[in-house]
Design a protein around this nucleic acid. Sequence first.
RNA 1: GGACGCGUAGCUCAGCUGGUUAGAGCACCUCGUUUACACCGAGGGGGUCCUAGGUUCGAAUCCUUGCGCGUCCACCA
Length: 881
Amino acid sequence: MNKELPKAYEPGLYEDEIYKRWEESGFFNPDNLDLPADAPGYTIVLPPPNITDKLHLGHASMLAIEDLLIRYYRMRGYRALWLPGTDHAAIATQNVVEKKLFKEDGKTRHDLGREKFLEKVWEFLRITQTTILKQTRKMGSSLDWSRTAFTLDEQREKAVRKMFVDMYNEGVIYRGERIVNWCPRCHSTLADDEVEYKETKSKLYWIKYGPFVLATTRPETKLGDTAVAVHPGDKRYKDMVGKEYMIPGVLGEFKVKVIADHHVDPEFGSGAVKVTPAHSFADNEMARRNNIPWKQIINEDGRMMDNCGKYAGLTTVEAREEIVADMEKMGLIDHIEEGYENKLSVCYRCDTPIEPLPSKQWFVSVDKKLPRLGNMSLKEKAIEAAKKGEIKFIPDRFEKRFVNWMGNLHDWCISRQIWFGHRIPVWYNSRNVDDIYVGENPPEGEDWEQDPDSLDTWFSSGMWTFSTLGWPDTFKDGKKSGDLARFHPTQVLETGYEILTLWVSRMIMMSFFAVGEKPFDTVYLHGMVLDKNGKKMSKSKGNGIDPLDVIAKYGTDAVRLSLLIGSTPGNDVRIFEEKIEGDRNFVNKLWNVARFILQTADENTTEIELKNLTLADKWIMAHFNALVDKNATSATKFLSNYNFSIAAELLRTFTYDYLADWYLEAAKFDKSTEKVKVLRYVLENLLILWHPFIPFVTEKIWELMGKEKLLMVEKWPEIKYDPGNNGDDFELIKNIVIAIRNARAENKIEPGRKIDAVIYTGNNKDLIESQSEIIKGLRTGIGKLTIAKDGDEPDDSICISVKGVSNMDIYLVGAIDKDKEKKRLEKEIANLEKLIAGTEKKLANEEFTSKAPPAVVEKEHSNLHARKNDLTKLLIQLKQL
RNA sequence: GGACGCGUAGCUCAGCUGGUUAGAGCACCUCGUUUACACCGAGGGGGUCCUAGGUUCGAAUCCUUGCGCGUCCACCA
């Protein structure tokens, strides 16, 4: 024994030190890789985690997948760049800090003022940002830290302003009125995902409305009505469409136009809807489609405006009561339906009902045709890229989802009434409201005031693939230079399917606009990480797993493996400790395989002499070759096709079932000149194959093997030695051993007891003889082993059958439980007879033999033949018993 | 309401460009401390592949329907 390794792999002892070595090697940065000038690029930009919180297992899964890809392609000789960063997550971050501020000091951001509040935000984000980067390293991520970016750092600020100005000058960005979700209590707009829906029971008022009777939950908005809408196919109102009517109301008569719109459900209510464009999203859309004017009647305090006569100043709820009472007096109420169930939209922070209000906002037009896009719109260009396969989706079903969603996309509202984020680079002249300045830098002069709003966080993260590669400095006159030229378009965008639409769509549109090319070749979508019961992990439910906790307990490699194995592209993955524990056990198994090999073969290898290989050597070499082959079932191929789980399972099967269980065991009895070389060759290459999955343990073993170069930059293996056959000879030995072990277990022969065996080999005498030590050594418990070409059945013995072998007889002598053996044989015979009957029936069916491919029919014939042989043999054995 | 996904061994999941005696890991049962590993080894039991139809010589795999679960989007006056 030359090297004394600890019995169990202890990740905690090595991980930090190994990561440090990787980082200090400089190889995370592709500029330092030793590559030919024309080496292909392979770039992934890390989807920047929000700095609202530390990382969870979902992030860990993302990091595991992306690091796997990057390490794989780095070893394949690509100029691999994985670019790290974080996202300022404007609204989410501001909310977290606001909540904290309120909880700790009872203050709102308005108490602090813009500047002071932003200081607080930065204070907060520096802490989470540091934690995030630390966690990311802990996962073993081979990110190029020298290129680290933040969506709100100086360089990205520059990019965002340039983008805004370019889009504005091109007429893509414009200012317009839009209905927003407004919380009257918080005095703020809410993003769609900040709106919550509450099941409520309310009243449905059926009101007399000129020639109509119609149902509404909000009679007070009648003051803002400008139209009545019906379904285009509704015969009841057919003749009224397009006409104008005077409607009696509590403040006198007013005029509405009747419009036809598909949005109206003719089954609901009376099939006619009053339209209040200023205070309803749906109504607003209908008004836009039909050119109907708006009339705002509710202000930002949630109160009726001055144009509401005697109701001015009332809250909407107060106004509703009074107006209903007045309508009642006027005989305008048809009837009131109680207990009507609907979903009320409320503020996620304070539960206050939301008031949709019109407001001035900045938009990105997705439909404007642009000369720079060949007269296509941003939307059309993105859809085309997906449909033409210029951008590929994995799994491909997401392409449909993407295209479908893009098709329904409306202009993108990019302004947010918050303080944290990229401030909109627009200045208004205080002396002349219509005088607007849009530019990358503030205008000269004192009368200019910058727009108080900030940009939607997706505006800056949508630029992530090129803003991180030096844009706009690396893009002049339509020509890419520097990092942008070398790494853009990137190869893969790997992210969760839940932000396919939010993020991916924006990246594609912005990249085409700014750089004139797609941001990435492939979008790989991963699923969500769920707990054992398939529930989303969340802090409030307490079912979350902290990556750092399980890493401390089981090691990073085990955590990575548990996230990769058993998960398929686009599908959710359930994670629980038992699973991680199992993978920890596997990592330990690999460690011990190495431990054994290093003990028995601690010397540097030279070229393997193929002619000296034993049966076991050839067998393991053949199976190793199958892993790195170019055919469709190799681990290499599955890695290239994003089938990480299948690749890992192939590697695991090889490591466990082939290498550890059989080859290493056989090696203990199978001495040959090449043994040491084969052991080292297989281990070495196996470590390379495993490295992208479990980088730490493989790198550590690699070091223990005496390698000077880092495994991280080792070349991906190809087939180097052809053993000349597929290892079938050793497969036969293996099956003999299994059959003997089986027979022993079936017959309850105590493990300590030696049994004599006789093998009549037929034509295989030399082969079996050469392997007799292995057969005896592999825990078959054989005492005296007799090998002959043929002979008589020994007394007091059973004949055992070997899988797939019919021209050989093996007898175990003595100590046989005949009853048990008889039962076993009968069971097996019954099973075989059933199979044979099935096969015969199939072959008798002329439809089958004439229509099925000849190869399939042929296979059935050979199956039948083999099964019949086996049956004959079993019947003889049974008779002899 | 719209779109999509899932339902295979007790649990977690592969397999699904149609042809295998339907697989893996964990759990379970029996046996075993054999110096790489008890974070172990040997052997074993366990599945009408959700239901009902259809296509086909042949379906876990393709089509239709129903049931159950999940995700995203929209949200209704």
